[in-house]
């Protein structure tokens, strides 16, 4: 049975149509495997080979991979949640209640989105500290560290903008406090707050602005920087793994 499936899969991989999509074909030589990476728009960000030390658990704890995993989950659940969400006052809150009690699997998707967001913030911080203690920010990887800092900021901004969207008490007052922190910026604090909220108080305009930031601008920025972040790993000579040394 297993061999039938395998040979059938092999046959599909050798069809002309499949070969137009994945040019590397069905072989399992290193050449084929290299081509499978090089000729794929997403995988070609990575190098064809990696040091086997870099795949061990101890240097990275897989924190980067886990962060990316939560980001994937967030994109998938976020898009699904958008189908049942209106960014308007007070409909936004009613939509939360609908997700909880009316929409099939709505409460599960909302839970998954919220908990993954918490997990992602935690993992991004953990990833940063792990990279620091491993010394992986050193040349030639300086700029990738800087991109990482910006990704941390984008992650926090994504959480913050997402926090307002349910339009509940927690959301409202967290954003009231947050927007007043912006007011403390010297010279142009008031203008920044006005632009951020689209008015003088946290209201429908603010909700819409945060919605656009949360669903369009910040995710696009994050995807872009994540792409550069991975590409830089290859360009900087692969994941940094300290040599095993005795103290």
């Amino acid at each position: 049975m297993a061999t039938t499936i395998k040979s059938e899969f092999e046959r599909i991989r050798n069809t002309e149509v499949w070969r137009t999509i994945f040019r590397s074909g069905s072989g399992s030589s290193n050449l084929h495997r290299s081509q499978a990476v090089q000729q794929n728009i997403f995988l070609h960000l990575f190098s064809v080979k990696v040091r086997s030390r870099a795949l061990e658990f101890s240097p990275t704890w897989y924190l980067g991979a886990l962060t990316l995993s939560t980001f994937f989950i967030l994109i998938a659940t976020g898009i699904l949640l958008m189908f049942y969400y209106h960014p308007s006052v007070p409909q936004a809150y009613a939509d939360m209640k609908d997700l909880q009690f009316v929409v099939a699997s709505g409460v599960f998707l909302r839970n998954l989105h919220r908990w993954s967001a918490h997990a992602m913030v935690f993992l991004v911080f953990a990833h940063m500290f792990k990279v620091f203690y491993r010394g992986a920010y050193r040349p030639p990887r300086q700029f990738n560290w800087v991109i990482g800092v910006f990704l941390l900021l984008i992650t926090l901004l994504l959480s913050y903008t997402g926090y307002l969207l349910p339009w509940d008490q927690l959301a409202f007052w967290a954003v009231t406090v947050g927007s007043n922190i912006a007011k403390a910026v010297p010279l142009m604090g008031k203008q920044i707050r006005f632009l951020m909220l689209g008015g003088n108080e946290v209201n429908a305009n603010a909700l819409l602005r945060f919605y656009v930031l949360h669903c369009v601008i910040l995710p696009l920025a994050a995807i872009l920087l994540v792409g550069v972040h991975f590409w830089r790993i290859r360009k900087d000579g692969g994941l940094y793994v300290p040599e095993k040394k005795q103290l």
Partner: peptide
């Protein structure tokens, strides 16, 4: 952009 993002009419 600054002009565009500053609402001219507010319902406050």
């Amino acid at each position: 952009s600054y002009e565009f993002f500053s609402p001219n009419v507010l319902f406050e």
